Computed example of a mutant assay.
Amino acid sequence: MRIGLSLPHIGEQATTENIREFAVRAEQSGWDSLWTGDRMLYPINPRTPYPGSPDGTLNPQARRVFEHLTVMTYVAAITERVRLGVSVLILPLYNPVLLGRRIATLDQLSHGRVTLGVGLGWSEDEFDAARSPFRERGRVTEETIGALRAVWGPDPVEFSGDHHTIPASVIGPKPVQDPLPIVMGGFSPKALDRIGRLADGFTPAIVPVDGLVDMVGRVQQAAATHGREHLPTVVRANVLLTPDDSDLPEQGRRVATGSWNQIASDIHRLAAAGIEEVFFDLNYVPGATDPQNQWDVARRLYDIGRNVDACS
């Protein structure tokens, strides 16, 4: 099972120096991938609750977020081997031609190391700011995926849809990878079917391990229904350690939360379920504003993850 890390591009720990040291250190230490996330706004009076927390509020760390594709471009220039991913970019907020060119350029600059994770989004405030129709985000996402693949495909590029139109044009560069992998997140039955039908992989998060494994099975079933082969899974694990290393109740416990024993158990269960990759977001662990605290946690996770491979 491949293992990765989220970069410290969120919160007070997000600095040029921390991102650089973290990326270089991770590559030198043998991690497989580095990841960012997408956050446009921290709404003061949000119209929609955040689905990733019990009380519906965003973590205050999200008040300061370095723009993720800019961070990835920077990290591409200071690394050579580690894979670069985003999980997830809120696809309906982006113009597919501009985004397609940015991703293709990043893939060229990194010599073919990019994985593009996409999702529908949840924040009506962000959709308002981007002037994108919130209620149509599923249809916009599907159309944007088609437009992106057209942009990355042979010239002349031409695309016509309800939301995006590309006149016959030459658009370059093309990505190094053919195809450049698009992995998609989602929770609902409709979203899981969409992933099985359109995406190159699945990137779930913030659910208990049993629910996660169940969703992976439903995505694979959807892929088979649509005549497609097995889709790889990249799990985003937002690490939350209990301050005294005590166990959390198992009922409803999300992946990679609780004590070290619980987190180690989660990692082993993901590997046993055939999950291809898991990456750990350390931006919310206790003491995250101290980069050394993040790295101490990262080293322990690395030992657990590599031990899974040694035991398999």
Rank of each mutant, 00 (worst) to 15 (best):
G161F: 12
V207R: 12
K190S: 14
D244Q: 10
W260L: 00
R149F: 10
V151T: 09
L248Q: 15
A199E: 13
G153I: 03
R197Q: 15
P243S: 01
K174A: 10
L180N: 13
P167V: 10
L180W: 14
V157F: 06
D245Q: 07
A199C: 07
I195K: 02
V234C: 00
V235M: 00
D214G: 09
L180D: 14
V213Y: 02
G211R: 08
K190F: 12
L192R: 13
I206P: 00
A237R: 07
A237E: 07
I171T: 10
T225H: 09
H230V: 08
G153C: 03
M215V: 00
Q220T: 08
P208F: 07
R253M: 04
R197E: 15
T233H: 10
G217T: 08
Q251R: 15
D244M: 02
Q220C: 06
T165G: 02
V170E: 11
H230N: 06
R194Y: 09
K174R: 14
H164K: 01
V216L: 00
V219D: 12
I206H: 07
P208E: 09
P208K: 06
R197G: 09
K190Q: 14
P204M: 00
I182K: 02
Q221I: 05
T242P: 03
I206S: 08
A150D: 11
V219I: 06
G258R: 06
H163N: 14
G211S: 05
V219C: 06
G185W: 06
R218M: 04
N238F: 13
V170H: 11
F159I: 00
T233P: 09
Q251T: 15
P167W: 07
A237C: 14
P175G: 01
R228V: 13
S259Q: 08
T165W: 09
D200M: 05
T203W: 03
G172C: 01
P204V: 00
Q177W: 13
A150W: 04
D162I: 04
D178E: 12
V157S: 06
V209N: 06
H226D: 04
I171Q: 08
A222L: 07
A224Q: 14
T257A: 08
Q251M: 05
S160Y: 13
D200W: 08
F159R: 01
D155M: 01
D162R: 15
A191L: 08
G185A: 02
D245Y: 13
R194M: 04
I166E: 04
P189R: 02
L248G: 13
